[in-house]
């Protein structure tokens, strides 16, 4: 499965990305648990805003990290597909 680059992603209700000031990590808050988002996941998820399509997210990341677009697109697809399956995000 892969997510169309036209998709506009958002966090489903009950899930959100949050910066934890005390521990200085990014977290995904979920029903009755919280997961730590590693720095790459956090960089991707900070762009998930329910407004911009996936293609723009990938462009932005490729630009920020000066990395080939395909590489970024691959990482982004892997992460987002799994979060959509777990219903953390919806397309």
């Amino acid at each position: 499965m892969s997510v169309s680059e036209d998709s506009i992603l958002k966090f489903t209700r009950g899930h959100r990305l949050q910066h934890d000031r005390v521990r200085d990590v990014w977290l995904i808050q979920a029903p009755e648990k919280a997961f730590i988002a590693d720095p790459i996941a956090a960089a991707i998820l900070q762009l998930v805003d329910g407004a911009r399509p996936l293609s723009v997210l990938i462009d932005t990341l490729a630009e920020t990290y000066q990395a080939p677009r395909e590489t970024i697109a691959g990482d982004v697809q892997t992460l987002l597909t799994s979060l959509i399956e777990q219903k953390v995000l919806s397309a």
């Binding site: 949050q18 934890d20 005390v22 521990r23 977290l27 808050q29 009755e32 648990k33 919280a34």
Partner: peptide, 9 residues
């Protein structure tokens, strides 16, 4: 919250 609690039940 200032101590670092993330979730309140």
């Amino acid at each position: 919250a200032s101590l670092g609690v993330l979730q309140v039940h």
